[in-house]
């Protein structure tokens, strides 16, 4: 479904991503792991069109993405829930969610999508009229994921959706994502510091180190092999 090949990117001549390849199949849950500064966020930003790669290709269902604007990529069903959530703080929960369905194709299903998001995150249902800037971190993260779902994605890229949340809430959110992945066969590319939990939910994982993809394997391989975990993940 998503096919990234030999991707490279530089920040002011400093290589940040070097020859990275990655694939996510239809309905697959993939964890992207690596330490801080490894390039995970940069990689997602390139895929969603916020940054332009120096070289390499990105294809989604066979269509090339690497020269498209972010709004065109979103329209194809590849939706990025970014690091730091990037919500609209002076707008209500409802307005934030509605804007997730901004594109005409998504707007046609707005009512049903909104109902589904509230079904997934019942807490948001009671807060639809509240300004997003006044919500707790956990609730804001629910809005961010909800806003991503409103676009009607086929592949959802989540960047650190549990950062700063309590362990219980983090677990709840990650399990909701897993539920989405199962029920709607939604493809997921998850970046998370919560390595063990990510591996327990994912089908497969990639490890990024200093901008290079150093390891790819199934989640079971990583969970079952301690030397592998220590070498690449430090746990």
């Amino acid at each position: 479904m998503l096919e990234v090949r030999d991707l490279s990117f530089r920040y002011d001549a400093q290589p940040a991503i070097v020859d990275v390849s990655l694939a996510v199949q239809q309905g697959e849950f993939v964890a992207l792991l690596g330490s801080n500064g490894a390039g995970k966020t940069t990689l997602l930003r390139i895929i969603s069109g916020l940054l332009r790669p120096a070289s390499g290709t990105i294809a989604f269902d066979g269509q090339r993405l690497d020269s498209l604007q972010p709004h065109r990529i979103c329209d194809l069903g590849l939706v990025h829930v970014p690091e730091g959530r990037q919500l609209f703080p002076s707008m209500t929960v409802r307005e934030n969610l509605e804007l997730g369905a901004y594109l005409p194709a998504a707007r046609r299903h707005l009512a049903a999508s909104l109902e589904y998001v509230i079904h997934l995150f019942p807490k948001l249902g009671a807060r639809l009229g509240q300004l997003v800037g006044t919500l707790s971190g956990g609730e804001q993260q629910m809005v961010a994921i909800g806003r991503g779902l409103m676009a009607g994605p086929r592949l959802l890229m989540l960047d650190e959706p549990t950062l700063g949340l309590s362990p219980a809430l983090a677990t709840e959110i990650l399990h909701t994502v897993r539920q989405l992945n199962k029920e709607r066969s939604l493809g997921v590319l998850l970046v998370s510091q919560d390595v063990v939990q990510a591996l327990q939910l994912a089908h497969s994982a990639y490890v990024l180190q200093n901008g290079r993809m150093v390891r790819h394997g199934t989640a079971e391989e990583f969970l079952g092999d301690e030397s592998l975990r220590q070498a690449y993940l430090g746990i």
């Binding site: 969603s48 069109g49 916020l50 604007q69 972010p70 709004h71 979103c74 329209d75 939706v79 990025h80 829930v81 970014p82 959530r85 990037q86 919500l87 609209f88 703080p89 002076s90 707008m91 307005e95 509605e98 804007l99 997730g100 901004y102 594109l103 998504a106 707007r107 806003r147 991503g148 676009a151």
Partner: peptide, 24 residues
Amino acid sequence: TFTGKAVRAVWQNRVGAALCGIDL
């Protein structure tokens, strides 16, 4: 209006707006 809300969205967070599919 939807477009009006998009104007406010771009003002509040450009990255968030672009990822919602808004043509900046």
